[in-house]
Design a protein around this nucleic acid. Sequence first.
DNA 1: GTGAAAGCGCTAACAC
DNA 2: GTGTTAGCGCTTTCAC
Lengths: 342, 342
Amino acid sequence: MSVTLKDLAKASGVSIGTVSRALNDKNEVSAKTSERIRQLAQELGYIPNRAGRALSSQKNINFIGICIPSINSPFFDDIKKGIDQALREFKDLGIDVVIKEQEGWDPKQQIEAIDQLISSGCKAFVLCSVDSPLIRNKIDELEAQGMAVILLNNDLPGTKRLCFVGPDYVKSGKVAATMVDKCCHNQKMKILIVVGYKEHLGHKNRVDGFISELQARNCDYQIVDIIEGKDQDIITQQVTMKSFLAHPEINIVYMATGSGVSGLGAAIIADAEHKRFVIACDEIYTTKELVKNDIVDFVICQSTQTQGYQVIKKFHDYFNKIGDDPQDYIVDTVIKVKTHFE
Amino acid sequence: MSVTLKDLAKASGVSIGTVSRALNDKNEVSAKTSERIRQLAQELGYIPNRAGRALSSQKNINFIGICIPSINSPFFDDIKKGIDQALREFKDLGIDVVIKEQEGWDPKQQIEAIDQLISSGCKAFVLCSVDSPLIRNKIDELEAQGMAVILLNNDLPGTKRLCFVGPDYVKSGKVAATMVDKCCHNQKMKILIVVGYKEHLGHKNRVDGFISELQARNCDYQIVDIIEGKDQDIITQQVTMKSFLAHPEINIVYMATGSGVSGLGAAIIADAEHKRFVIACDEIYTTKELVKNDIVDFVICQSTQTQGYQVIKKFHDYFNKIGDDPQDYIVDTVIKVKTHFE
DNA sequence: GTGAAAGCGCTAACAC
DNA sequence: GTGTTAGCGCTTTCAC
């Protein structure tokens, strides 16, 4: 059988209660005893038993506060599914969740939401934010107060976040380029790239990965245009149409953002007389439909549901001291084609 | 708070022990009370608490017997990784595993192994077998004795297995065909198909899916040859070389089995003057190397690690009556390219 | 600062 | 066939 608190108590000559306190960072224990017990636990390979802990402290549920800009954003549907799935799995092990959904990425609103989550008793947070000093400060501040933050989908390196769960945007771009190379190697590539915002780090990384891989593969390519759709369908449609008109030679379209695809689809359908190879990102409903209808050739997805699931699982492991310090979890870059949606 | 045994006991006017027995299919309880309690549990939405159960009956670990033909078969490496991962997750919740690895697929040997697993106390089994009356009988026999079998990677429909965890072979073939179409649409496709054994159901399904999708896509194709590599490197190399020699026009190779890839690789390298588009299956070490070295263009994978993980998780859910009756778990069909391995 | 003990939900052994 | 109870590993009062 595995080592229990009782064993540690016996071995160290103190009571089982003291051992528990020492191992749980309570400062009611003298530094000396505490140190001794931790040492011993290490040596004997003590692993806390989740069942015992969950049972005991179930009046003391760990509430995770989740703050995501998911209102009117279908991208987050699967993330929420993953969170639900994890919750089903971990609820009776002492974990629960409070979600604050928001519309858009305004840092001030997010910080307000976090503060509300704090007042409702959360001590651990999942955040999906853009890079801003406000947010960066908030994360470090929370950490200083003994709270933990996991960043979801978009990392903010240099902050004191516990870890990051999300995709490798550079790789996503590289995979897209690989597909372009495999499918269009025998023609001169005249490429249109569509992003949401040129400053958006994720989109930027995708574009960088895309171009670097085309280069690495010695493709005969030319980036005809890089346009911004502002993550909105109508704008995306307009700028794409404009680009098609100005550059009828475009034969490849790489859409490096998941938002605004409807607009892209509309533009392509409107200019159907030019046959183009199209790659999109992220598996949302509209994108699936476009693939099903042969408007888009490939989608490069980012295992969204897994991200939702892992963010909770990471906290579960963290609370239960399972494994070492939490590491970043980079999800798979997944290529999907029509067949996947049939 | 959620409903507990105590609540049920109070509500139904019997003792907590009786409730527990009634809910655990013990036949020491009168049919009437049993029925009444189950009814009540249903109404009140009782969900057993895993922590309590695990803690209580931890001397009564559920041993899962696993019987897989994994010796000298790198394909099973990731499956074993998935099993390990699940075990780390569920061990302190009352689940453990006994593995009997075998070399090859001999049904008689497998049945022997199962019997050994039974004598070592297993009451639940994970099996990866070929279709044979012996195995089919054994599965139904086990079920009749109140034991449960989950089939891994290869289903045997019509048997009384609890459920199946594995890939959709037909879809795998279809995805392969989709890739061929996307990458080679502008040439006459002269296709060589390599299987392990023509009777192997999984390989057969892949080939069927492959051809049906080529047809659905109106490809200009011709299946030049379908050859058997007997899942061995040397044989695969020989038959492939022979086919290349007889049909130098072959410009596409679809390898519908994961075993024998080294042989395929050798054949392609030996005949490098003919540039060919190559698709392989299953992500094992050798295949990765071939992709990295641009010998193979795509691999169609079957999320092997997930299969190992899910097989254990399914049993965990089953033992703890989480969710409804176990459903089949069909893993994702995953396309991988060089970039994925860098 | 530390020990003793109650109790979380559940199962199984022991009464009757 | 059913009630009673000990105890699984752990946290957390409540004493001292």
